[in-house]
Design a protein around this nucleic acid. Structure first.
Length: 506
RNA sequence: GGGCCGUUAGCUCAAUGGCAGAGCAGGUGCCUUUUAAGCACUUGGUUGGGGGUUCGAGUCCCUCACGGCUCACCA
């Protein structure tokens, strides 16, 4: 345990004096008849004729956010989950002992309970005229001294607690002093609820599949490895849900989805966190065209539910989430922004040569698919501000997707882009077990392979597929990115309660 | 992993290589309708850690840690 700071020592001394004065600093129970919002609403609904006297009986509870001592009377603000309310305390009403205890021994950050009637002050604020108060929990450590007041409907913030490292490391303090941070996570909960509501309404079944997996797959990422001691078995934290959800289609569950955490042992960036929330669904008898239409409808439903509208401003740009997103074939997009016709170069060597001729440098060991991805990422993505489906991807970077009839080099796959980043990825799923095995082998897998570049072959997945898998469309979406979009946050860390940070020596 | 920038009081920030400061928070008083309340006085620092240059380092150099942005990585 570290040493207490001077400020903490002062509060610990107050804590002892409170006990002596008969204020239990951590009582087991609180009583509350109204939230601050309920109290204010009740007063507004039934306004008294004499607004300068206290009316009604309200008991509220919350954290002390401001104290203004004016001699024998004191104003304070408390904040609860619903809002804030001003308290008015007078020595006449409370007695010398109790009044002095509040003034001398209560601090910003303490949780208190206060009872009394409501009145309107000279300056027009509805305020609780306190007849009784209790301490509910003493704050030993002072919260970061952020000041924030609403004046004329304008929120003014003073000395905000805004150092990103401190805010993420001590998210509890961030939440305690920055109400707008709490709003992000309220929005996040509404977003995931709206996704579930939408998919449930479409007849999808929410399921839970293993996070600890003996083999990993379904995405292009390195896994975290762990170990089961009793079973003497290495296990991987899942990098996707895909292979398990599609096993369920074999089992006769026709529409399934899962919202949960994926873990990818990759770089951290403004749009990547080692653990992140994914939504995947699989839909028997549908193809990627139907999945596109469902995606548009789902995103619009979430916007309707969470924002009440389908247009939003993301980082200063207007985004329109109405269905009818353009379908842009990947080759056309690349041609549009680079002038390169990738269809004219069916081999990696040929495409690399054409790129070099345009001054675009790439790793000469790249496969053709990797080169295409680089062109997409470097030249096309940034232009996809309005929602856009990029469709029809190279087969060699899409081992789980079904080939497009008449064009075996291209698969029925789409990615949804909004605000210049990838939001979702989906395809008409490959359900031919022989083709699937061939694809795995093409990817460089064999039954023993397990390296950075090649994933182990999931024989059980092939076994499932051999029993017969209905044709289906599958979909995956980074939920954190959807939350970023709908809350106008530029980094994924702002929409994760506890984003990954390197550990710090204590 | 690379590049750039940053780390000073509880919080937000100042400080030509020359006495480490302000506002808020805290403490002691005054103040019975304030709301960034006000007024007076006041406490608080291993300037992220370590090393170096210098008469003298918050400031310059090296190094380590952590963070931010960015690039790379992410079939």
């Amino acid at each position: 345990m570290r040493e207490y700071t001077e400020l903490e020592k002062i509060r610990l001394a107050k804590l002892e004096r409170l006990r002596t004065a008969g204020f239990e600093p951590y009582p087991p129970r609180a009583e509350r008849t109204h939230t601050t919002a309920q109290a204010l609403a009740a007063y507004a609904q039934n306004p008294p004729t004499d607004t300068h006297a206290a009316h009604g009986a309200y008991t509220v509870a919350g954290r002390v956010k401001a104290i203004r001592v004016m001699g024998k009377s004191t104003f304070a603000h408390i904040e609860d989950g619903a809002g804030r309310l001003q308290l008015f305390l007078r020595v006449n009403d409370l007695g010398e002992t109790a009044y002095r205890a509040f003034v001398d021994l209560f601090d910003l950050g303490d949780f208190v309970q206060a009872a009394g009637g409501l009145f309107t002050t000279k300056s027009g604020e509805v305020t609780l005229w306190v007849k009784e108060f209790r301490l509910l929990a003493k704050a030993v450590s002072p919260l970061p001294a952020a000041k924030e007041e609403v004046v004329d409907g304008q929120k003014r913030v003073y000395s905000a607690f805004d150092n990103p490292e401190a805010r993420y490391r001590e998210r509890y303090a961030d939440l305690a002093v920055n109400p707008e941070v709490r709003d992000i996570f309220r929005a996040r909960a509404r977003i995931t609820a709206a996704l579930r509501q939408f998919l449930d309404g479409q007849g999808f079944l929410e399921v839970e599949t293993p996070i600890l997996q003996p083999l990993y797959g379904g995405a292009a990422a390195r896994p975290f490895v762990t170990h089961h001691n009793q079973l003497h078995q290495d296990l991987y934290l899942r990098i996707s849900f895909e292979l398990y959800l599609k096993r369920l289609l074999v089992g006769g569950l026709e529409r399934v989805y899962e919202i949960g955490r994926d873990f990818r042992n990759e770089g951290v960036s403004f749009k990547h966190n080692p653990e992140f929330t994914q939504l995947e669904f699989y839909w028997a008898y549908a193809d990627y065209e139907q999945v596109m239409r469902l995606t548009e409808a789902m995103v619009a439903h979430v916007a309707d539910t969470v924002l009440g509208r389908r247009t939003l401003t993301y980082q200063g740009r207007e985004i329109n989430l109405n269905p009818g997103w353009p379908r842009l074939p990947l080759a056309d997009g690349i041609a549009q922004y680079t002038g390169l016709d990738i269809n004219a170069y069916p081999t990696a060597e040929g495409l690399l040569g054409a790129m070099e001729a345009k001054g675009i440098h790439a790793d000469p060991k790249s496969t053709r698919g990797k080169l295409v991805e680089k062109l997409l990422g470097d030249f096309v993505e940034e232009h996809l501000q309005q929602p856009t489906f990029i469709v029809d991807y190279p087969r060699d970077i899409s081992p789980l997707a079904k080939a497009k009839p008449g064009n075996p080099a291209v698969v029925e796959r789409f990615e949804g882009y909004v605000a210049g980043f990838e939001l979702c990825n989906a395809f008409t799923e490959l359900n031919d077990p022989l083709d699937q095995e061939q694809r795995f082998i093409e990817m460089g897998r064999d039954y023993a392979a397990d390296s950075e570049d090649t994933h182990p072959l999931d024989e059980d997945y092939l076994r499932a597929m051999r029993y017969g898998m209905p044709p289906n469309g599958g979909f995956g979406m980074g939920v954190d990115r959807l939350v970023m979009l709908l809350t106008d946050k530029a980094t994924i860390r702002e929409v994760l309660l506890f984003p990954h940070l390197r550990s710090r020596e204590e």
